[in-house]
Simulated scan of single mutants.
Amino acid sequence: MNNKIKKYLKEAVILMFVLAIAMNIISYYKSLDLNKDKLDITSFTLLDKNTFIISKAKPLLLHFWATWCPICKLEGENIEKISKEYEVISIVVQSGSDEAIQNYMKEHNLSFKVVNDKDGIYSQKFNIKAFPTTFIYDKDKKLRFSEVGYTSTFGLYTRMLLIK
């Protein structure tokens, strides 16, 4: 019986490794069409109607998501954690009214900065086709990283530290 458990554990580890590689390949493929230009936006109007001015001296994590996206729900806590230490702007797409989004944020204990992309202006500008999609810009607003799909808290912290 012990040999069977070892065999299944070994197969599970191999499967997880293969899945991780496949997910990274898919993410890379999906990110090929994203806007790779230098960030030319200097401010955003947030959900709470405040204006957020992008720092010229700090890296920026720009995160596109939707309230109806199950992967985005899983990733929300990761974005929340990283937003406590780094400059993060999240852009919520196809997710309803400001009030509906505020209710979603409250229900899921999220407090990061949110822009409601009601008209799809930002999602078109960045050529977003799937959610979640994350961009990381250096302090000069040059794109250093982009990913389509789930990103762990550890992965986000590591990428932010590498471009600092």
Rank of each mutant, 00 (worst) to 15 (best):
G149E: 02
K106G: 01
T67V: 11
I79L: 10
F126Q: 06
G96T: 08
N2D: 14
N2E: 15
I136N: 04
T151V: 14
S31R: 05
N109V: 01
F52W: 13
D40G: 15
L161R: 12
N103E: 13
K125L: 12
L156S: 03
M105W: 04
E11P: 00
Y86E: 03
N116W: 02
K56M: 02
K84Y: 07
L39K: 10
K6M: 13
I79M: 11
M1N: 12
N78C: 13
I89R: 02
K30Q: 13
S27W: 09
Y137E: 04
K49T: 12
K84R: 15
V88I: 03
F145Y: 14
G76M: 12
C72Y: 10
F17M: 11
P132L: 03
Q124S: 12
T151Q: 10
K56Y: 03
Y8W: 15
L156C: 04
A12W: 13
N109Y: 10
A57Y: 11
Y28I: 07
F64N: 10
G120H: 05
Y28W: 14
T42N: 14
M16C: 12
S97P: 00
N35D: 13
K113W: 03
M23F: 14
N109L: 10
G76S: 15
G120I: 05
Y157N: 12
I14V: 15
T151C: 02
G155C: 05
G76K: 12
T67L: 09
V13Q: 10
S27R: 05
S95D: 07
F112P: 02
F126T: 07
A66Q: 14
